[in-house]
Amino acid sequence: MRIPPWFLGSVLLLAGCATGSHSMPHAPHDTLQGQVDALMRDYDGHVPGASVLILRDGKPLLRRSYGMAELESGAASSPTTNYRLASVSKQFTAASILLLAEDGRLRLEDPVRRWLPTLPDAADKVTIRHLLTHTAGLIDYEDVMDPASTVQVHDADVLRLLESQDRAYFAPGSDYRYSNSGYALLSLIVERASGQHYAQFLHDRIFQPLGMDHTVAYESGISEVAHRAYGYTFDQGRWLRTDQSTTSAVLGDGGIYSSIDDLARWDAALYDQRLLRSRSLQEAFTPATHTDDPTVEYGYGWRITGETLWHSGETIGFRNVIVRYPQRHLTVVVLTNRNDPEPYGLAKQIAGLALGI
């Protein structure tokens, strides 16, 4: 594993909080760690937990975990715990498309039917850029799945479901509607343009080059998740394991597992050209469309609010968020293996504490 020198130094500096809040007494509340501990108290103990990362100038101000990665075995959460990222995965799908555009394998203005010709006529004017920005108007695959089926669908199944839907919510480019369908199709385009299985492309072109050695687009029976967190839902006074649903095997819209340690490496790559050229990064981070929230615009796999670039991820048993303040070189990541609450507001509070230092 290739680990940057700053990362090792910071790990030593923060050794006392590397394994979780239950491993040491809480710090005084006038310190950043104490303040974050207070905000995260509901995640501490024998409950589904969380991992929190604050990066400033590429170095961790705080790298801390709480609670349990798996209640049944008593496995504690740690900074190496890998959570299902859900829609935080979309930034990796978008980056894959941009890498292939840089390779000259595709263009963002390509009609989607050039790559996926079995899509119906209603998709005729949809481009790759429309898929990236949720402006394609495609039907949500979750709404046309068989509600009685207990079999997990995969990205290729999303295409098959959409093949029967010769209709759209609106003309491409005329409106915004958040679309998991679009990002599932993007993963298939990555496969066809690259000649590689999508999970392998992610490994070879993003995860391995960045040293994200334990990040994986998880496929049951094919890959494994190291230090895996399992998802839970609080129901009738107790935590129930709710780790997978019928849509959890779709990779392009949400199937990546990662940790705060690996996401630190991802964040670092978004400041320079070690992965993508500066022009590609600028495109990804530039508002391409308004959304249904007047405070939020959307780029390529990133929401944009004021000075922040961010994305949340919600799926059965997991709630996650990454919030970046690129002009201030500050990033906050909160990963949790429980169904509630959404951690975006929490991450903003944590960022406020860090910005006040």
Results as ranks from 00 to 15, higher is better:
Tyr169Ile: 00
Gly231Met: 12
Arg205Lys: 07
Ala193Phe: 08
Asp235His: 11
Ser223Leu: 01
Arg192Asp: 15
Tyr198His: 12
Tyr176Gln: 10
Asp235Val: 09
Asp166Trp: 07
Gly221Thr: 02
Gly221Glu: 11
Ser164Leu: 13
Ala171Pro: 01
Arg238Ile: 00
Asp235Thr: 11
Arg228Leu: 02
Ser194Glu: 14
Ser194Thr: 13
Arg192Ala: 13
Gln244Pro: 00
Val216Ser: 08
His203Ile: 03
Tyr232Gly: 01
Val216Gly: 04
Ile189Gln: 10
Asp166Gln: 11
Arg228Tyr: 06
Glu191His: 09
Ala171Ser: 12
Tyr178Glu: 14
Ala229Phe: 10
Gln196Pro: 00
Ala171Val: 05
Ser179Asn: 14
Ala193Glu: 14
Tyr178Val: 05
Asp175Glu: 07
Tyr169Met: 07
Ser245Tyr: 04
Asn180Thr: 12
Asp235Gln: 11
Gln236Ile: 04
Ile206Gly: 01
Pro172Met: 05
Ser194His: 13
Gln244Thr: 11
Asp166Cys: 08
Tyr178Met: 06
His227Lys: 02
Arg167His: 06
Ala184Pro: 02
Asp213Asn: 15
Arg177Trp: 10
Gln200Val: 14
Ala193Ser: 13
Ala171Ile: 01
His197Val: 13
Leu186His: 06
Arg241Thr: 02
Arg241Val: 06
Ser179Phe: 07
Tyr183Lys: 04
Ser187Pro: 07
Trp239Arg: 00
Pro172Ala: 07
Glu163Gln: 15
Thr242Cys: 12
Ser187Asp: 14
Pro209Gly: 09
Thr242Gln: 12
Ala171Arg: 08
Gly195Tyr: 08
Leu188Ser: 03
Trp239Pro: 00
Ser220Ala: 15
Val190Gly: 09
Arg177Pro: 01
Thr233Pro: 00
Gln244Ile: 03
Gln244Met: 08
His203Thr: 13
His227Arg: 01
Tyr198Ile: 06
Tyr183Cys: 06
